[in-house]
Amino acid sequence: MGSRVDEEYDYLFKIVLIGDSGVGKSNLLSRFTRNEFNLESKSTIGVEFATKSIQAEGKTIKAQIWDTAGQERYRAITSAYYRGAVGALLVYDISKHPTFENVERWLKELRDHAEANIVVMLVGNKSDLRHLRAVETDEAMAFSEQHNLAFIETSALDASGVDTAFQRILTEIYRLMSRRNMQAEEAAAGSSLSAGQTISLSDGGKKKKGCCA
């Protein structure tokens, strides 16, 4: 287990890691949360989980990250974990084009099972495999613009882009949430809350970690 520091945080954001199996989701998670990389890690069965806190715009944001199994057969189980997620890192492997082609299917999974306003970032992992590159950066960037996704390339192996990816998606979620809360307050000041107003799980301000020994 990681550090037992009983930290305080301002916001808790749930993030899911999705994408085909073997693209490096688990290693992205371990690189971000523990700064570890394992070339021969086991496949993820069901879900795994880790947390890490970061600073964004003067706030402490605790990311609760759910790493899901990539294989199709597990969708029924893993899609349950999309509930309540405010962000998703949709990962493909830049050296395996089929994993990029499947991104559309993963977006559909999110549309079907996740919150409508979930922030999605497309992540091209294994950027260290330059000589094996099968998905051009331009291609992926065009795709992400077309689908209104954030985009980054990472390498869990050499750590490039990993912290940035998490930092960016968490900051983005925080900004969206602040804006939405502000709008909600304005709306509430004017009239009653309109139907369908979604306030993210972290509204209501400061949370403190409670139950830890």
Binding site: S21, G22, N38, E40, S41, K42, S43, P98
Partner: peptide, 19 residues
């Protein structure tokens, strides 16, 4: 086949026999 080929190299990775 792709799935099998992805998983076999990460089967019992800590046991040298499986490498």
């Amino acid at each position: 086949l792709r799935q099998v080929l992805v998983d076999v190299p990460r089967t019992a990775p800590s046991v040298p026999l499986f490498r």
